[in-house]
Structure formats: C-alpha cells, structure tokens
Amino acid sequence: MSTASRSLAPTVTRRAQARLGIVLVLPVMIVTALFFLFPLGNAVYYSLVDFDGLNPNPPFVGLGNFIRMVEDPAVWHALGNNLIWILVGTAAPMVVGLLVAMLLWTVRRGGAIYRVIFFLPYVLPGVAIGIVWGWIYDPVNGLLNQFLRSIGLGAWATGWLGEPDLALYAVLLTAIWAGTGFAIVIFLSALRNVDTELVDAARIDGANSAQRLWFIILPQIMPVFLMVLTLTLVGGFSVFDIIFVMTAGGPANATEVLGTYAYDQAFVLNNIGYGTTLALLITILSVPIAVLLNRLQRRLSLQGTGA
C-alpha cells in the first residue's frame, strides 16, 4: 500500500490495520522472546557468573569467564579444529554437491531414485550415522580396514578414530557423506530454474563445461548457493553431535571442537558458567557470517540474479 493511499484511509481503518498487524506479529514476537531472547539473556547471565550447576546463588565474576576463555589454550585448539571443519566440511559438500547435481540435472530417467539415494543420509539421525560409521572405522573388525586388506592395501588399515592426526578427518568424512545429499537436492532444485537457452547459447559460442558452469549456471543459482553455503558454514561452527558420538573429542582432545569442549566444561566438569561462555563464542562467531551471507543472498535476489 502506498503512502498516499494509506493517508487517504479513514483513521478507524488505519487503527484496525495496526491492531491486525500487531495480532499477526504477536505470535512470532512471543515465540522469538520465549525461544530466542530469553535463552540468550539467560546465557549472557550464566557467562557472567561462576555457576557449578548446584549453587542457586552463583558468584558474579564479570568478564572472568571471557578472560579465561581467551587464555585457555584448549579453546584455541578447539577453534582450530572448527576452522578445519568449516573449510573442509563446507568446501567438500558444496563442490561435490554441485557436481553431482549437475550430473543428475541431465538424467532423464530414474532421477527421483538418485535423489532419494543421495538425500537418504541427510535424513538419518546424526547419532545413528555416528554409530554406524564407528563400526565401519573399527580398527579390528571395521568394514573399511577389511576392504583395504581385501584389495591388498592392508598396510593402510589403521584405527581411523584412534589416530590423533587422522581422527578429525575421519569424522569429517562421515559428516560430508551425511551432509552432501542436502546440497545435491537443493542445487538440483535450483538448476531446474536455470535458463537452458542461455546454456545452449554459450555452448554454441564455444564455452566449455567449466566456463558454462562458472559464467552461466552459477550466477543463476547464486542465492541458493549462498543459502546452502550459509547453512553449511554455520553448521561448521556449531558441530557437536557427530563428533560427540564418534570420538567425544578424543583421542586426548585431538578432535575437540568448541561444541564438545563447551559440553565437557558445562556438563562433565560442571563449569556451567564457563561452558555457556564457550557456547556464546560459537554464536558470536557464526551469527555475523550468517548475516553477511544472508544479506548478500537477498541483494542478489533483488537484483534478479538467481533461480
């Protein structure tokens, strides 16, 4: 409704519209306050006290938990693992997902079956995935080592989750396997809206596959690409369940990330104040990136670029 038409509307109507607006927005406001603002405020409170989970009147420590966090080498170690997770765990599903989606895009028959097959791991519970892959990685009876031995690569058989230098990447591979299906399905949906005439025209003009992908297809699916990127990236900061199930941050903290370290501090060592501070760090790190990518996505959408 334009400003002119709004100003011409009777006062009673404007008030009714305002009331209706409030009524419509109220449920969202309540839900936001209840499930976002209140927990956030609570988390900020706990980050300022030394709460052990039992004392009903925990002592106020101000920024003590934040100072401790900065000085804690375990935090930096965990953050480093988070960065590896974010880099590899974001790049791999994006690249593999896009390539597989491109392949499936051209499939004329049985596309639905492929989509189900690739998407299936994504809908499986993380805990179940972690347990099953734990069996696969088992150093004695695991399928992976048995397979390696059966093809004469027994020297490569190892305790994938027990080697400090390998364990993080072994878990990461599981996460990539589980998450790539999501990227494939979303990219595939976006590709259905790509203008194929432009692709054909580029092909006639001599553009090779990589050029068509980079200059013709990718710009058209960029908002969707950014949406998947945002979700995967933020997931990299908050990763917890699959590591917790498969290694619990071990061996000897080799796969510790901020999520598992925060859990250990809060629920194993009863440093709930400090654990909450670590959880806030995850929020502080991931929200700006999410907001940035979201804005970029909206801008591209408004420019008319994308699927």
């Binding site: 734990g134 069996w135 990685y137 088992d138 150093p139 004695v140 009876n141 058989a157 190892t158 305790g159 994938w160 989750l161 027990g162 080697e163 364990a167 071990g250 061996p251 000897a252």
Partner: peptide, 21 residues
Amino acid sequence: FPPSPVAIDYDNGNALFYSGQ
C-alpha cells in the same frame, strides 16, 4: 593391545573377548 585401542569402544572391546578374538 588391539591396534589403535583408543578407537575401540567398551562394547566392541568386550565383544572382542566374547568372540575369542
């Protein structure tokens, strides 16, 4: 000990014994 004992959980460790491995 088994190879990479820190990669074996309690249940699987017990299973190694139960199975005679």
